[in-house]
Simulated scan of single mutants.
Amino acid sequence: MLRAVWNGAVIAEAPRTVIVEGNHYFPPESLDRQYLTPSRTRSLCLWKGVARYYSLDVDGLTNPDAAWYYPKPSPLARKIKDHVAFWQGVRVEGTPEPDEPGASEERPKGVGGG
């Protein structure tokens, strides 16, 4: 099982994730939404599309814009639609479950990062 952990709280937990550019994207149903607050922040990736962000709130501490997702990704990134990735001190721990195919790497051939 893979877990995204910050400030002692498990923010997301899933048997597998989709890995894009080294980031684990957790499926939307794996999130513990009590810790997520929508943010107004947006960013643009030339091949994935427009990212939206969440801030994390755990035990009175806030980690602004520590999670992001693509609600309307480009066709090249469709497998991460609404999946959430983390940064800014959020640790991804654990390993995929043995009976699962594991984490899969997604990136179109010939496309740079973003």
Rank of each mutant, 00 (worst) to 15 (best):
G8M: 09
I11G: 08
I11T: 12
A12R: 12
E13L: 10
E13P: 04
P15E: 10
R16F: 04
R16W: 02
V18G: 05
V20G: 03
V20D: 05
V20I: 08
E21P: 05
E21N: 04
G22F: 04
Y25R: 07
F26D: 05
F26H: 06
P28H: 07
S30L: 14
L31G: 08
D32H: 11
R33W: 03
Y35W: 07
L36D: 03
T37Q: 15
P38K: 06
P38V: 13
P38I: 13
S39W: 06
T41L: 15
T41R: 12
L46I: 11
G49Q: 05
V50A: 05
V50F: 00
A51V: 04
R52W: 08
Y53P: 05
Y53A: 07
Y54R: 06
L56M: 08
V58I: 12
L61Q: 14
L61G: 11
P64E: 12
P64D: 08
A66W: 04
A66H: 05
A67S: 06
A67K: 01
W68A: 13
Y70T: 07
P71Q: 10
P71N: 10
P71L: 08
K72D: 10
P73C: 08
S74Q: 06
L76E: 11
L76K: 09
A77Y: 01
K79R: 09
K79F: 00
I80W: 00
K81T: 14
H83I: 02
A85M: 10
W87T: 13
G89Q: 07
G89A: 06
